[in-house]
Design a protein around this nucleic acid. Structure first.
Length: 571
RNA sequence: GCGGCUGUAGCUCAGCGGAUUAGAGCAUCGGUCUACGGAACCGAGGGUCGGGGGUUCGAAUCCCUCCAGCCGCACCA
């Protein structure tokens, strides 16, 4: 089906084109009417015509009567009110449309780089936003019809691996595997670090081990592989606990690009971009300066001849464009790295590795703050493990359920508490502008009141309960939407807005566009539910309202699923 | 110093291409109430949109400037 917005836009464009080809009708949802088109004023200005006259001129070309009534308001706004017959037919189309009116694109590939934990290190709050936002974007892109290639750019290379491997040897492989597999990565890392800092012999061994690793020594690589495999297995557990779609197959760490790095340097040189500066090999992309106003380098090869992360990132861009055939590349990485990515993209463009036809964006996000408005830490000052965060949320959800649903068995309650905990944490992250920092306040995010994940789950569960009580077969096929009650109409209109919400979230890479929409829809529903009896209504109103409920439940469930949030049938 | 992000109600935040009366949640106060799940709904109070300029018929939104906070700015990713 064609979404309501697109139907209106198509008609309006036709009329605007008749006056000036390509003029934007500036169509949007309205609180004055159903939709409004604001493009008349801009058009009037560019054509040098009085806005009200221009509105009349647009109207004379506008063929829209079967779909909406149009009224010129104020200086020249076109207020559109959908006709009852069009509303009815759009809603009936939604009933038979699994996608609820959302458009698809075909044949496009998106590479989404997100999560990126470090091997032999615990996943902590620092990874939360990349993981949650990235996964939501991946789900939305898949739903839109993209071929999504998730890339988990884990830190699996570099000097720390010398000490980690030596520590692995000291501890013994079996012992190390056991300790890594129970997710005690931090103490493994901390112990290695402590020895490195206090023991000169160990430090020297570590240095030699790094050389062996980089030199491709087989035994060293085998030991390194143990660390990587155990860590990846642990990450998979964390992703499962968070209901994140990443799998071990998506792990393509820094080491993957090792063999490409020398080519990166060679080709940059061949392109005349490479400059030696301070004995390091650099590229100076235009427009970047340091604190002294001098050109700022992207260091691709360090003075010790090791490759920097810039080389890896350049190799990754090249791989994603050249081998993966990406049409879009997204980096879900914290805001502090924005300059780094701007420089990488600039160099990749200059080198011809990143054509203008490929959309390449740094999806930046702000920090997770504690109650003191500083980076969230535990009371003792440690980083907060993701698993600990989830456990705490689950235990709070669980005690809330103890009070409210004592009849539920413990297994069911545990499952439900987990679903609620994930919803609380993810929704809090996905419901504000990602660029901002936000304060992690579990008390607020886990309540069932207000703009929270659990509230949306509850709204969905209430809807499902209606159908459980219905207790008889019900078919929406013959429903006619008359929408005589304001609350019905308001809800119905909300249902039609789903495609716009999704489009907005995808276009801006802002999941909160979608979450904000879902919250608005849930509120429209509860208002409707209060005002309009469903099961006790007489036919045909009863069926009409049941159909509205069905569509609302499906919209909430689908929308939440695109955010990576489950919508249980009962709470 | 340069660059980026942020500053909207007591608190947490929306406000999408400039557009008609600045919204929501929480908190506060007042209602609905023997309930299709009250984990709800309805209503009220509360904002010179950080300050100041500018553009415009019209600015929270665009431009300039100042203030405050956070972050980045050569070999760690």
């Amino acid at each position: 089906m064609t979404s309501t917005y697109d139907v209106l836009l198509g008609r309006l464009r036709h009329a605007f084109d008749a006056i000036h080809v390509g003029a934007d009708p500036a169509l949007r949802a309205s609180d004055r009417s159903d939709y409004q088109a604001n493009g008349v004023m801009a058009l009037a200005k560019s054509e040098g015509v009085n806005p009200r006259e221009m509105a009349q001129k647009v109207l004379s070309h506008l063929d829209i009567g079967d779909v909406a009534e149009v009224e010129v308001a104020g200086p020249g706004f076109l207020n559109l009110t959908l006709t009852p017959s069009f509303l009815n037919s759009q809603l009936r189309s939604l009933l038979s449309d699994e996608r609820l009116g959302a458009a698809t694109v075909g044949g496009r590939t998106a590479v989404i780089d997100y999560s990126a934990p470090n091997v032999a290190k615990e996943m902590h709050v620092g990874h939360l936003r990349s993981t949650v936002i990235g996964d939501a974007l991946a789900r939305m892109y898949r739903f839109r019809g993209y071929h999504v290639i998730a890339r988990n750019h884990v830190g699996d290379w570099g000097t720390p691996f010398g000490m980690l491997i030596e520590h692995l040897i000291d501890v013994g492989e079996d012992e190390a595997i056991a300790s890594l597999s129970i997710g005690d990565l931090d103490s493994f890392y901390r112990d290695a670090r402590a020895k490195f800092d206090s023991d000169d012999v160990f430090k020297e061994r570590s240095r030699e081990r790094v050389v062996a690793l980089q030199g491709g020594d087989a035994e060293t690589r085998r030991l390194w592989r143990i660390l990587v495999d155990e860590s990846v297995a642990y990450f998979a557990e964390v992703y499962a606990a968070l209901d994140v779609t990443l799998t071990p197959a998506d792990v393509v760490g820094e080491s993957y690009y090792n063999d490409m790095l020398s080519d990166v340097v060679r080709d940059l040189d061949a392109a005349g971009l490479l400059v030696e500066s301070g004995r390091a090999l650099c590229v100076f992309p235009e427009g970047f300066t340091n604190r002294d106003g001098e050109p700022l380098p992207l260091i691709v090869q360090k003075r010790d001849e090791g490759f920097g992360y810039s080389a890896t990132d350049l190799a990754a861009v090249r791989d994603r464009v050249g081998n993966l055939h990406a049409d879009e590349i997204l980096y879900v990485v914290g805001a502090p790295q924005s300059q780094h990515f701007e420089m990488v993209f600039a160099v990749a463009r200059a080198a011809g590795w990143l054509p203008d036809t490929v959309r390449c964006e740094h999806v930046a996000f702000g920090n997770v703050l504690g109650p003191d408005r500083k980076m969230l830490k535990t009371r003792s000052g440690d980083t907060v493990k993701l698993i600990a965060l989830l456990d705490e949320a689950r235990s709070r959800a669980s005690s809330a359920l103890d009070v409210r649903t004592p009849q539920m068995d413990s297994h069911q309650r545990h499952t439900l508490a987990t679903q609620i905990a994930r919803a609380a944490i993810k929704y809090a992250d996905l419901s504000t502008d990602r660029q901002r920092d936000y304060v992690f306040d579990l008390d607020r995010m886990i309540t069932f009141e207000g703009d929270t994940g659990p509230y949306l789950q509850y709204a969905h569960a209430r809807l499902r309960s209606i159908f459980r009580r219905l207790n008889e077969p019900w078919d929406s096929a013959e429903v006619t939407f008359e929408l005589n009650d304001n609350a019905e109409r308001h809800l119905a209109l909300g249902l039609l807005h789903f495609p716009e919400a999704l489009d907005g979230a995808l276009a801006t890479l802002q999941p909160h566009r979608l979450s904000g929409y879902l919250f608005d829809l849930a509120q429209r529903f509860t208002t409707f539910y209060e005002a309009c009896p469903v099961l006790s209504a007489a036919e045909p109103t009863r069926s009409e309202r049941l159909a509205l409920c069905e569509l609302t439940a499906r919209t909430l469930s689908l929308g939440l699923s695109l955010l990576g949030i489950e919508a249980p049938d009962q709470m």
